[in-house]
Design a protein around this nucleic acid. Structure first.
Lengths: 345, 345
DNA sequence: TTGTAGGCGTTATCAA
DNA sequence: TTGATAACGCCTACAA
């Protein structure tokens, strides 16, 4: 194994307390605490004595005790929907990376797209005395969130809310959707189907609106027949395609409001012997990792969910420092890959 | 916009404490505690008085204080690799669901495929005084894990370890890989390429072995040229295919040691104008959600990562109850979809 | 600059 | 069955 010279006591897990450190260094516990937290200036000599005592004893402060005494748990609650989704997974990764750098630990709890679960999630987080809460989308009412922000600082992603201890920001979904639709229009498409997201979410509404914006600007009438409901999952994308074909709706392109539905749509098309992009052009939204690896790779709107995660975490961290949070959500960007092509008719 | 520098966050809502409940109910704090934990029998009258006080005051026990006093934090640490991977995501979901039912909260920390990070992850978990730790694969040495299990109960997934407070179980990767390879052989394939996983992991070694098992049993020589290194990510699957083709290695089928590499391989093949399954048959491993939605849907070995997660959680929960843990990892199962076909030459 | 003492919300140990 | 009374490990006035 590793070779240590002086074998500085490898206390694998002897639970060393602050008090023991104090004794070893010949100072009082408060002095150790002060050094640990930089709460006050301490003489150079004691500084060193304590530091070396800490090192030799392998002392690690106990966050639980800290939480009790100081009121801070150094943990941040995160209400997500499904921890396993490619979309939320990226966001959580961003949050984890960012919070870790500041010594915080994120607590992930899933809302399962269900209002009650979300409420429960929020409550377990509050019970755990997290220092702050980040809410990713979700179905909880705005007013309810506002109210909860009275008891804990909050960052809400994907909404527009204001409050003294509540900060929110949203990705510009509307512009993103407009870009996607415009691209299809530029390629000559006129019959562009929309597979929309779960309309309980603001972003789904925004994406729908962006689609309408683009069509309207191009002087193309919005045909309700071309607008299919979806729920952001793969299966709904496939279903939408089936319905489109079964009902004999004419279309040459599809804009799916997220990548997962686009994947489902691609499979649905293939099952009906329609090729992407030769027969139908397809655009997604989000740019999850898999979008680069489908056959053909998917043209999509990059949302940098990872970055959204880091932005949310940064905002929370600055709230916790008592600063005004700010966030610069990444600008939407269309990534041209191989799932679209100029119409040839 | 910088503003008030020092406005430290403080929950401003009335936090109800156990003591307040005691007062309201006209009993001592200990009695309330006993009722809460069922530590001892309490008279019916006081039972009710306390219960109603709890309800009326909206009291929720403080897990932080509980952790300090009782030594239990009702939290379980989970060392994963990347929280955002489709694979680990499923496992975490299973763990979350299962632990939640028992009132525990999982703490997810990523190891990032890096031994040092993993060690650090484990340490933050220990510092947080989690009641137990679940380790998903990882690179930490067996001995190190054994040692740590001295200070906290552990469940290790994907290894074979034994210890008084250490329980481990592994999915039968070898059989799974054998099934996949046998299937290709039955379809008439003889030149079957293997894209292996990160050989630092036991399961990668096992899958390699299962491949060899099947070939050997069928009297087919193992050709080193057909064995390509991979790292379980999409890109390495694509790279492997490129290399195979660039080096003019003849092959009619590919067994990728996980789905993600299979996806990469599929894209690589398509870029070289080879069709799946017409020109090349392809099999993956894991059955991540996306495997059902690729074009064509991927034949793969189902591993039910979700179930592995729940099994791990159950094992941990029973350890915490002082019982002997047991786990029945799901049996490997080949899922036939559309990415393979009988060779026609 | 440093130490003392009290408290954070619960659980656990004693008596009663 | 109950209720004081210590811990638990740390932070923070308040003193010195």
């Amino acid at each position: 194994m590793s070779s240590d010279k002086k074998a500085p006591s490898k206390p694998m897990d002897a639970v060393v307390t602050l008090e023991q450190v104090a004794q070893a260094a010949g100072v009082s516990p408060s002095t150790v605490s002060r050094i640990l937290n930089g709460t006050a200036t301490v003489s150079q000599a004691k500084q060193e004595a304590v530091q070396s005592a800490i090192r030799e004893l392998g002392y690690h402060p106990n966050p639980v005790a800290r939480g009790l005494a100081g009121g801070r748990t150094l943990s941040i609650g995160v209400v997500t929907q499904v921890i396993s989704s490619p979309f939320y997974g990226e966001a959580l990764l961003g949050i984890e990376r960012e919070t870790e750098r500041a010594g915080y630990v994120p607590l992930f709890v899933s809302g399962n797209w269900h209002e009650d679960d979300e409420r429960k999630a929020l409550q377990t987080l509050l019970a755990r005395r997290v220092d702050g809460v980040i809410v990713l989308a979700g179905r909880l009412g705005d007013d309810e969130l506002m109210r909860m922000s009275g008891s804990v600082p909050m960052v809400v992603v994907g909404r527009q809310l204001q409050g003294p201890r509540l900060f929110s920001f949203a990705f510009d979904s509307r512009t993103g959707a407009r870009l996607a639709t415009e691209h299809l229009i530029e390629q000559g498409h006129r019959r562009i189907a929309l597979i929309s997201g779960d309309m309980n979410h603001d972003d789904a509404v925004d994406r729908h609106q962006g689609y309408v914006d683009a069509l309207t600007a191009a002087g193309i009438a919005v045909d309700p027949q071309l607008i299919l409901p979806g729920d952001y999952n793969e299966a709904s994308g496939m279903l939408a395609v089936n319905r489109l074909i079964d009902e004999n709706v004419r279309f040459t392109a599809i804009f799916a409001c997220n990548d997962q539905m686009a994947f489902g749509a691609a499979l649905g098309l293939s099952r009906r012997n329609l090729r992407v992009p030769d027969d139908v052009s397809l655009v997604g939204f989000d740019d999850v990792v898999m979008a680069r690896y489908t056959v053909p790779p998917l043209t999509t709107v990059r949302q940098s969910v990872y970055e959204i995660g880091t932005e949310a975490a940064k905002a929370m961290l600055s709230m916790l420092k008592g600063e005004m949070p700010r966030a610069t959500p990444p600008a939407p960007e269309l990534l041209l890959r191989d799932s679209t092509r100029r119409i040839s008719r």
